[in-house]
Computed example of a mutant assay.
Amino acid sequence: MSDAKLTHIDESGAANMVDVSGKTPTVRTAIATGKITMKRETLDLILSGSAAKGDVLATARIAGIMAAKRTHELIPLCHPLALSKVSIDIEPLDTEAGSEPGFKVTAMAKLTGQTGVEMEALTAASIACLTIYDMAKAADKGMIISDVRLMEKTGGKSGNWKSQ
């Protein structure tokens, strides 16, 4: 068991927003990923650009970026952040290599500030996957969103971290 303390809980056990005013601003980045799997026909429909609701992947990218910017409205006790960059990369999963048809979403959030951007990257990846689901659900209600996770973070007092 780690000696790490939960930073959003005070000595009496009450939830609170962490005071970051004394922290030195540093460049901070976070990368998160998520996966959405689907029928092969659904993947082909999305890749062809023929989905009834329009360009699924472009819309998912925009939704992920917008979500990162609004994370503080969705997750209690998150600080509103002045993000300097958010990017969303969506790549088809390689069905030739034996994986299920679908997409891998990679979200990157960056700023110079006093607190990290992990939640913004995770929110962006999640919402991009949810947007793909929403825009293609008429063709495939059985799509599965999975494996949303932090892959890497840099900056701040705790330094750099990378998933193994």
Rank of each mutant, 00 (worst) to 15 (best):
K157T: 07
P76T: 13
L83I: 00
M119V: 03
I65P: 01
K23W: 01
G49A: 11
C129M: 11
L45F: 14
K157Y: 13
T37F: 13
A121M: 01
S2Y: 09
T131Y: 04
G54W: 03
D19E: 13
A52I: 13
T154Y: 14
A67G: 02
M119G: 00
T71L: 03
D89W: 04
P25R: 02
K104A: 14
E41F: 04
L43T: 01
M135K: 03
C129P: 09
A136V: 04
E41D: 15
V20C: 09
T26H: 02
N160S: 08
I65S: 01
T131L: 10
P76C: 08
T42M: 12
V20A: 10
T37R: 07
G22H: 14
K5G: 03
S87P: 05
S87D: 15
M38I: 06
V105S: 13
K110E: 15
D10L: 07
W161E: 09
L43I: 00
K141I: 03
A124P: 03
D19A: 06
K157I: 12
D19H: 06
A52T: 10
N160D: 15
K157C: 05
S84E: 14
E91H: 10
K153I: 04
R61D: 10
L74Q: 09
A109D: 13
K110L: 12
L111F: 10
A67R: 00
I132T: 09
L83S: 01
L45C: 10
L81I: 11
S126L: 08
G102K: 12
S87E: 15
